[in-house]
Design a protein around this nucleic acid. Structure first.
Lengths: 206, 206
DNA sequence: CCTACCGATCGGTAGG
DNA sequence: CCTACCGATCGGTAGG
């Protein structure tokens, strides 16, 4: 290889490699799971040898944690922006939230984080890391819950138990990733739209 | 040990051990995932040594497959029975389905199959096994979908896209397992009831 | 960023 | 049902 055998410390190439590692890990973790993905697998995609990964991350665990935190944050940012930009009614905010959350999951299907894996990941994360990711997940749930509470107090939503309905909608959204590919009839946007419409129908006052 | 070193072939004890293995595997797989569970882990719970597992299963893969198929079948049987026994209206059938499905998941939380893991399991199952489990899952989806179709043609449900609404409800149900434990305020039956009420509200005609 | 290498653990086999 | 053991693979380290 023409790569420099010396002088690799603190070069600008490092930044690039770090991102490439995270990207490769994201794809493999979501496809094969954490334990099912070896450092050799990740390194191969990046085009380096496995031990070189330790120039960018202290442990395999650190790669997992970074991947998860990045994924949650990216999703939250998209949802928050769409909700903020939406018209100022509970219905529009709810549509914006569900639509953007669903669409984000479907479009980044190969690198998604939240869908189904958090449960398994719990076994490979340190207690301190778990606290952090749980806090981030709660922020995400809060975003949806606040919309539902506002709609209820505005008198436009009918909801018996806000917690249950929040998780009901959240579960439906996050599960969309599992069956989407099987229905070529509908595009990602079609599905996101229909899921959002279902969420609205669920809380609509008769 | 007082166990017979010889004469263990085809004794009645075998039947028992096989079930014990499946039970142990179910708990560990759902808690640690397939790759995260070693044969030593399973054997330890049963009270035997790892190589002895091969008297009951040809491979670790076969244990996984049996565990999954058993789980899906048990769930389906419960749901079908509850739906059949319910009053003969689409609303009652829908309530019966969602309530029994949710309750089954919450009550057998440690050994559940369908929730979130099928995606990961796909990587460790043979194509022929995948075909079989997919067929079983489709049967489960069909059970719910038929109720929705019937309600729509009876004119009591309002549904834009039956496929999307089917998976919307299915996703909400299967996700209940992830957040349930955090809400000690509600019992398993409380949650199952509220989830079923949400499903009804979703399809109710205004 | 590499090569060389380590201890630990895994699924599975042989043979009784 | 056991003990003894195998090849393969894993995450991670040493040293340059």
């Amino acid at each position: 290889m023409a790569r420099q055998p010396i002088g690799w410390l603190r070069t600008q190439a490092n930044r690039n490699t770090r991102q490439e590692i995270l990207q490769a890990a994201a794809m493999l973790f979501s496809k094969q799971g954490y334990v099912g993905t070896s450092l050799v697998d990740i390194a191969k995609i990046v085009g380096i040898k496995a031990p070189s990964l330790y120039n960018h991350f202290k442990t395999k665990n650190e790669i997992l944690f970074t991947y998860i935190v990045d994924g949650i944050n990216a999703l939250y940012d998209v949802c928050l922006q769409n909700v903020t930009e939406a018209k100022d009614t509970a219905q529009d905010k709810l549509y914006a939230y569900v639509f953007s959350h669903t669409l984000s999951l479907l479009e980044s299907q190969e690198t998604s984080t939240l869908s189904g894996q958090h449960h398994l990941n719990e076994n490979f994360m340190l207690p301190e890391q778990l606290e952090q990711t749980n806090a981030l997940q709660k922020k995400q749930v809060r975003l949806l819950k606040d919309i539902l509470m506002r709609g209820k107090s505005d008198g436009v939503f009918q909801i018996t138990d806000i917690t249950v309905t929040t998780f009901f909608i959240m579960g439906a959204v996050e599960h969309s990733i599992y069956w989407f590919q099987k229905e070529a009839r509908l595009s990602e946007k079609d599905v996101a739209h229909l899921v959002a419409e279902n969420a609205l129908a669920l809380v609509k006052k008769p």
